Simulated scan of single mutants.
Amino acid sequence: MTLHVVVEADGGSRGNPGPAGFGAVVKEAATGQVLLERYDSAGITTNNVAEYSGLIAGLRAAAELNATRVDVRMDSKLVIEQMSGRWQIKNAGLRPLAAEAATLVGKFERVTFDWIPRERNKEADALANRAMDEAAGKAPRDRIEREVVTPAAEAPKSWAPPALENATRIALVRHGATPFTAQGRYSGRGDVPLTDEGEAQAMAAAGRVAGIFRDVDAVLSSPLTRCVRTAELIAAEAGGVPVTVMDDLIECDFGDWEGKTFAEVQERWPGEMSAWLASTSVAPPGGESFQAVAKRVRAAMATVLHSYPGKAVVIVSHVSPIKLILRDALAAGDAFLHRLFLDAAGVSTMDVWPDGNIAVRTVNETAHLR
């Protein structure tokens, strides 16, 4: 079964640069029925960045619906012409966004880009303005998306991945164990170190990575000590490759739940816990939602693919970022996040091609830990 959708997207900035927002509407092409809506603040940025953010949000929503064909319609001449390959991307700040959009385009059998006048893009424009109003406190914040109102189509059939010569090969490694790991405590921004067991696990993971990649071109890490130390051991095994810290690879901020067990949180914050488990838009008290984590992790992945095309890259991070990367790579839904378990020092691998094709080869390898 195939699903043909139309993505209408827009973004705007009040000040250029200034407070910005974006919106996207996904409709069934045959009927015009709205299937999903997305909108959010883009922070302080330019119109063009906000417009690209709207495009990315719309393509991601279409991927979640398992769409096979997408017709993108925007009133941004710049985005349409650049994504169609007719205009060069001269602004360096837009290149990672265009690369992320191109990666998403590769998930579909066919994507077209068409410019439309602003009066025909009113729905997406209204969502972008709503995001800016809510961020400024001028409108109540109620929801980020409208749920699917018709059953999603079946996923398109897979195909054999191309040869590896021009693929970016990525190993995703969770850090080794810390004192919180065995105790089952939420470990977010707290900078807990590896235990002796964690050090041994990290060294074992280093050996496994060396067995996967003949040569490692880059080792990237969350800024927290437990990841940096794991990355250092992997880099040493790879011949002394320098470790590069990427702040966007940091773990989710669990706020008031930091250092507490699931049972402790369930007892003290039962309502907040239920809401958090039910929606990726909900954050723990004083913390960060998975949607917010996903946004920065996608930016990090776009930077990786832009900076290391055709290279072998090791990313050392935490449970939440790695789960979100794998969710996106597999075009899975949010339920995936609660059904996947990642062991300390577990290794997952994936390949990404310039046309956006992705092959997830392994998930949570642990044989090296036994």
Rank of each mutant, 00 (worst) to 15 (best):
Y308P: 05
V26T: 14
R69E: 13
R110W: 01
G259I: 08
V192F: 13
E251M: 03
A182E: 09
I358H: 00
A206L: 09
F336A: 13
A344I: 02
A177R: 10
N16M: 06
M1D: 15
A57G: 15
P156D: 09
L97R: 02
R130Y: 13
A302N: 11
L104H: 03
V304P: 01
Y308D: 02
E64C: 01
A62N: 11
M1Q: 14
D196K: 14
L337T: 12
R298Y: 03
V228N: 00
G346L: 01
C252W: 01
R143D: 07
A235C: 10
E123F: 03
I325M: 14
R208Q: 14
R130F: 09
K107A: 14
I144R: 14
M1Y: 09
R118V: 08
R208P: 01
M301T: 01
I116G: 12
P223C: 03
G93H: 09
G333P: 09
A238N: 12
A153H: 07
G54I: 02
P270Q: 02
A101E: 01
V293Q: 05
A302G: 11
R226A: 05
G240Q: 05
H368C: 08
L164N: 10
F290Q: 08
E365V: 11
T244N: 13
P156A: 13
G190L: 10
T261M: 04
G15Y: 12
C227K: 01
N48C: 01
F254M: 04
R208W: 07
D253M: 07
A231S: 07
A236R: 14
A345E: 05
V363C: 13
S279V: 04
E165A: 15
P321D: 00
V360Q: 02
T181F: 08
A218N: 06
M83L: 14
R146F: 07
V209A: 09
F336Q: 12
R189N: 06
L35G: 04
L340N: 06
L249G: 02
S76M: 01
G198M: 04
G286F: 09
M74Q: 08
Q183S: 15
A102S: 07
T244Q: 13
L342I: 07
A359P: 03
T2K: 14
L326F: 09
T46W: 00
A92H: 00
T225C: 11
F213Q: 07
D142H: 15
S274Y: 04
A205F: 06
E365T: 11
S307F: 01
A135D: 05
V79E: 05
N129R: 07
L326I: 11
E145R: 14
K138P: 05
D256S: 12
A42Q: 06
E199V: 15
V72R: 07
G346Q: 04
K311R: 14
V241D: 09
M273H: 07
A278T: 00
R38D: 06
A163Q: 12
A275T: 01
S13T: 03
A167G: 08
V265H: 07
G211L: 11
